[in-house]
Design a protein around this nucleic acid. Structure first.
Lengths: 338, 338
DNA sequence: TTGTATGCGTTATCAC
DNA sequence: GTGATAACGCATACAA
């Protein structure tokens, strides 16, 4: 493995429509017609153009095409980052659908940068439409993008004006999961996760509290805030489970957070499902590798991504689809001890 | 959550450099100069242009700027998909470094599509340089991209001509891990994973076999091929561990595959670390949540991503950096029973 | 210091 | 059928 120094190969300058036209002995208009599958071009000429293009390895520049007002056949996805299985699955579902529609997909991570709107706007220049996830750009920024003429679909966040949103059911599902624990006699529940981090998490916290009230119990005033990572949860759980009056059950905002609690429990000599009940969220495969297997909430993540793609396609085509919310299903395994 | 029907808001047509010039009472050249921070413009005029631009909410189009020959201040990353923590971490490291250099990052997933080269070429139109991962486009396609003038950095695959590559140490590390198992008396080892799926995996398989020969043992002729997912590994392990003469130790090509084996072992009533030794690869956090904790190989994944970014920046700046290979470190925990 | 004119690679509207 | 030519939004060499 080694570099070869500094001999710079001369980049053969990119072929353009002019190069191709010249080589085929026609005008650029004809080349463009061939490309557009226009039938108003003689078969012989058509063939000449095609071979010329092939020999030169020419592909029309999407850039120029877009500048000339054509759609790019590409769509963009704006995410806070690409960390974790949830987002990966969303992208997967989205891409499947987009590929089927012969669209290419560009993914942008904003990483909480203050310049996120600018980045999204730049991306909007390159694509025909955008999907925008929860904590990326503000509602106002979304409105501005729409005003500039970019069709948007919101993801995992509430609808803004007439911009449609794709979401999954969180509040009711969280209440259901919490009620399950309460019914099985748990009296000190904790919620692990940061409700302010994303609309989805906020709703789960709301549902957690609502279930308490519905059962005539007093919910905890505050969640146990942790970041998004398993390591964050591990640290938080170490403190939480080792305190005086530790919770008998922990409702985790994601499976990854729950995994952190498994590690902490093991290191404290606690047995999950017996000493402490645990639930996660997302039905991550790792939940089946853990001992005992993790009780969790199944969301149709890929379907959510695919749905976002198809709504976006409709919007690009000029339709005005409605927002959609997909249901979640609890998956009861052993970690909740029930 | 509901749509609002069909009332279409009229997109106020995008402001251009002409609009701004007119409003400020200057020519487009002057507007452009202001934008380029040229000092050859009178402070008063400059101010007029600035306020005009502000009032119109004008941002120069990167599209047009790029067409006019300017760099885009953006770079692209071409991955097979965005599945799994490994790739997410690579992207994270890459983005951190790119953001620090004030570059925005566009991510493209090829998903094994035959049109991958085409997609990469399109992306190349929009950015100043590209990082290309293992099983995305062919070596020839990479050469063609370079010839078109796009600086490339290869990732997790061998160098091609003078195109530099960023990789991690696999072969030696795999041999080391395997030797560890052999030294502790294991005599029937299996390798779980598909060496043909990626150069990295292929090298791990090579190292696995080399360690056998170095210890005077005969390595298995074939790996136990599984896909990339935990579920694939679960299914494969169910068969493998339940057969006659099952292996006493399984070297898994990734941690996610190892997690699948944990699930299978548990469901077969086997205890990992006692009935069967297990090793993974990547030092995924989930390895610490498993019981017993997973022995694995730590790769500096984010650093690899960051390194790719900085090599790419050098290439864009006109330098010709060398390829680099970063070392891996074994992390011995309990799953190997040693 | 500022304006004019041209190029960048397309598409599309005219003529011929 | 085919060929000029004007957009599209920007940068810039050259004039003024």
């Amino acid at each position: 493995v080694h570099g070869t120094g500094r001999e710079t190969r001369v980049p053969s300058t990119r072929p353009s429509i002019y190069t191709v036209a010249e080589r085929a002995g026609v005008s650029i208009a004809t080349v463009s017609r061939v490309l557009a599958e226009s039938d108003r071009v003689a078969p012989a000429t058509r063939q000449r153009v095609l071979t010329a293009a092939d020999e030169l390895g020419w592909r029309p520049s999407r850039l120029a095409r877009r500048l000339a007002g054509e759609p790019t056949q590409a769509v963009g996805v704006v995410f806070p980052d690409l960390v974790g299985r949830y987002i990966a699955e969303v992208v997967l579902g989205f891409e499947r659908e987009a590929i089927a529609a012969d669209l290419s997909v560009l993914v942008l991570g904003t990483h909480g940068r203050p310049t996120a709107e600018r980045l999204a706007t730049d991306l909007a220049d390159h694509v025909d439409g955008l999907v925008v996830m929860d904590r990326t750009i503000t509602d106002d920024a979304a409105r501005r993008l729409e005003d500039r003429g970019t069709p948007l679909v919101l993801f995992a966040r509430p609808q803004v004006d007439e911009i449609p949103a794709v979401r999954s059911e969180n509040r009711r599902a969280a209440a259901e999961l919490t009620a399950h624990l309460l019914e099985h006699g748990h009296d000190r529940l904790a919620f692990l996760g940061d409700p302010d981090a994303a609309p989805d998490l906020s709703e789960r916290w709301l549902g957690f509290r609502a279930a308490h009230r519905a059962a005539g119990r007093r919910p905890p005033n505050k969640p146990v805030r942790a970041g998004f990572s398993q390591d964050d949860a591990y640290a938080a759980a170490l403190t939480l489970l080792d305190g005086r009056r530790p919770p008998t059950a922990v409702v985790c905002a994601t499976d990854e957070l729950a995994a952190g609690v498994y590690g902490a429990a093991r290191d404290l000599g606690l047995v999950v499902g017996r000493d402490v009940a645990l639930t996660g969220w997302d039905d991550h495969p790792l939940g089946r590798a853990l001992t005992p297997a993790l009780t969790t909430m199944h969301q149709p993540i890929r379907e959510l991504g695919a749905l976002a793609a198809s709504l976006l396609c409709m919007r690009i085509a000029g339709d005005a689809p409605r927002s959609e919310t997909l249901p979640s299903e609890p998956v009861i395994r052993r970690s909740c001890g029930c």
